[in-house]
């Protein structure tokens, strides 16, 4: 499993809190330069994994490898790894600019770049006008945005975010999504979240965890099947001619699902392009007068997660 390109690697990690097992031999490998979603039910071990990765929790067994340089060590990884904890408050009496400057200093951002860096992350989260405000005067959502901002100070190589979207208004969710999509090349972002729709939009890799164990990890394309599956959602009174479509696409798997309201088409990317599939199927459906409600590539991450966790 060792690879020069891994950003975070867990090998048989076991973590117990009293009698409760939080991580039960978790092994996973997150490659560098990707945005990875950590998905699992409540208590699956997502937050524990992030805390173990950053050395805040000590594992009982197993090894953690950060940026291929062994276990997390602030002396070695300072400035290269950052995190956004789930339920942590910033010091309330500190001013926003001061607290970010403090973190940037600890992260060894060069002194002359600190002011620019603080301004940059505050601009990202649209809070540059509150730079001089004490943290206690900010709303809950604003504080969350500052917490997200601090994780990106100094452009670290590995950023671990625990529920970054929770408590944010829709406009800020879109803003954070843009921020995540703009991450630098070679930088890795790991996001633990229950918001699977958001993860689907920003992640290119997904790890499913349940009961402290790895269920599946793969690229988003492979998990949702979006490079080789197209789903056509149809109205309930539709009756598409499947046999005709099967003759037109002999190499593809065509099925009607959910009481005929979904036409599922699985194909090989080497024999058919997405454009071919759309042209053939949409043409046939329109010709038959079928009411098409939605065309989607692959299944939703939510559906993939449910099918894997059952």
């Amino acid at each position: 499993m060792n690879d020069r390109t891994s950003a975070l690697e867990f090998t048989d990690v076991f973590k117990r809190f009293g009698r409760r097992v939080a991580l039960d031999g978790l092994s996973m490998r997150i490659p560098r330069g990707i945005t990875c979603g950590l998905v699992g039910s409540n208590g699956a071990g997502k937050t524990t994994s992030i805390a173990v990765a950053t050395g805040l929790l000590n594992q009982n067994r197993g090894t953690v490898n950060i940026l291929n340089e062994g276990a997390f060590d602030p002396a070695r990884h300072s400035g290269r790894v950052s995190m956004m904890p789930q339920d942590s408050d910033l010091p309330l009496y500190a001013r926003v600019k001061d607290i970010l400057t403090f973190y940037a200093r600890l992260q060894a951002v060069p002194s002359r770049q600190i002011a620019t860096e603080v301004e940059r992350v505050l601009n990202w989260v649209n809070l540059s006008d509150r730079a001089d405000a004490p943290v206690r005067t900010l709303s809950h959502g604003m504080r969350r945005r500052i917490v997200v901002a601090q994780a990106f100070l100094g452009s670290p190589e590995l950023v671990l975010l625990d529920e970054p979207m929770s408590g944010l208004d829709p406009r800020e969710v879109i803003n954070i999504r843009k921020l995540l999509n703009r991450r630098g090349d070679g930088n890795t972002v790991v996001i633990s979240s229950h918001n699977l729709h958001e993860l689907e939009l920003v992640c290119d890799h997904v790890v499913f965890i349940e009961k402290g164990k790895l269920v599946r990890q793969d690229s988003m394309d492979a998990i949702t099947g979006r490079t080789q599956t197209t789903i056509f959602r149809l109205s309930s009174c539709s009756d598409p001619s499947i046999e005709k479509l099967r003759k037109m696409l002999p190499d593809a798997v065509l099925e009607q699902r959910k009481k005929g309201t979904e036409l599922f088409c699985q194909y090989s990317g080497s024999t058919h392009s997405v454009a071919d599939i759309n042209r053939i199927i949409l043409g046939s459906l329109l010709e038959d007068g079928v009411e098409i409600l939605e065309v989607r590539r692959g299944q939703k991450l939510e559906s993939a997660y449910i099918s894997h966790s059952e």
């Binding site: 805040l56 602030p74 002396a75 790894v81 904890p85 973190y103």
Partner: peptide, 8 residues
């Protein structure tokens, strides 16, 4: 936690 991922 914010400080302890940045320093020992």
């Amino acid at each position: 936690r914010f400080a302890l991922v940045r320093t020992t």
